[in-house]
């Protein structure tokens, strides 16, 4: 058996076993892991279009938001959990199909911008369609005990999106996507049906956030437009993909683990301590700097953009390590 499969299998195995362990902090950890899975799915699915095909889709979060709302609406219409979840993902894919043709007439920065504009547009549309979405009051659903099932379901979506992304990277479709990234005009000159390929890529990349959106609603029992359309949730997964290494299978995962780790382990903890020091005669509460975590996130993003455009995974020492572990997929 190929050693490349060993490490992922062990990780997934451990994760599968984790909820069986009896401990006080179990539910808290499961919740953090859910946040991590959510981000991995968003980052990885973004990267199908953003990394492999080179279209920086700043509106990727719309698929997630549609999945989240559609799931809630279907569930409240008594469609049942499974159908609602599939329906939510389906709604995302349908929406992707609707926007794909017009949006893919745009290239480069124009595409990114129009997609970014779509986030705001859909947010206002959601607020104004109060009858369906609850408008600015948000959308509520009823759900029972779900910590463990949601953990397994979201893990399953992670596994699915990673496998899907891996298969695309090795497929004929993936090759065509990469030629579009490198030089779309030349790709077309060599017979690549660029529009068809771009549409296929977008449809695939919209399915997983749609699914995850449903699970998110199920987890929170209440969503509003800030939660699913907010700029932070819209842009963080993209930053994660680039931070880890866009275009590489492992990249979005590394980025998500890093940023969720920083967020949960450092800032959440820091906000709870009150550690006062005297600085130049002033009493300074270190804990209050936890409020600057947006700035620190921003700073990390700036530094990545400036100094490692290829992300963590393409730093030579990291690359060597990943290659040794068999986790480095080639992006060429």
């Amino acid at each position: 058996m190929n050693k490349a499969f060993l490490f992922p299998l062990v990780v997934v195995g451990l994760l599968l076993a984790f909820p069986l362990i009896e401990m006080d902090a179990r539910d808290y950890i499961l919740l953090i892991l859910f946040t991590l899975f959510l981000n991995i799915v968003l980052a990885q699915s973004y990267d199908i279009v953003g990394g492999q095909m080179g279209y920086v889709n700043l509106g990727h979060i719309v698929f997630f938001a549609i999945g989240a709302y559609a799931f809630g609406i279907f569930l409240n219409a008594q469609l049942g959990f499974v159908l609602s979840l599939i329906g939510g993902a389906g709604a995302s894919v349908v929406f992707a199909a609707l926007i794909s043709y017009p949006f893919f007439r745009l290239r480069g920065a124009y595409f990114s911008l129009a997609a970014f504009g779509l986030v705001k547009l859909m947010e206002y549309v959601t607020i104004n369609m109060g009858a369906l979405t609850g408008g600015s009051n948000g959308l509520k659903i009823e759900a029972g005990d779900r910590v463990v099932p949601i953990f397994y379901l979201s893990l399953a979506v992670v596994v699915a999106v990673v496998i899907c992304s891996w298969l695309i990277g090795r497929s004929q479709l993936g090759l065509a996507m990469k030629t579009i990234r490198e030089d779309e005009e030349v790709a077309r000159d060599f017979g690549v049906p660029v529009l068809k390929i771009k549409v296929q890529a977008l449809l695939i990349s919209s399915f997983f956030p749609g699914l995850m959106g449903g699970l998110y609603t199920w987890q929170l029992q209440f969503i509003d437009t800030d939660q699913v359309f907010g700029l932070k949730i819209a842009l963080t997964p993209i930053a994660m993909a680039m931070l880890g290494g866009s275009g590489l299978l492992i990249g979005p995962i590394i980025g998500a683990v890093f940023l969720v780790g920083v967020e949960e382990l450092i800032w959440t903890q820091l906000a709870q301590v009150h550690w006062t020091v005297t600085l130049l005669g002033y009493e300074v509460d270190i804990g209050q700097f936890a409020h600057l975590r947006g700035a620190i996130l921003g700073l990390i993003i700036v530094l990545v953009g400036l100094f490692m455009p290829g992300g963590f995974a393409r730093l030579p020492p990291v690359e060597r390590m990943l290659t040794r572990a068999g986790l480095m997929t080639e992006d060429k």
Partner: peptide, 14 residues
């Protein structure tokens, strides 16, 4: 205008 980021092999494969 080869596909600069792709391998020589994949350039031809396209």
């Amino acid at each position: 205008r080869p596909f600069l980021g792709l391998s020589v092999y994949n350039n031809v494969k396209v």
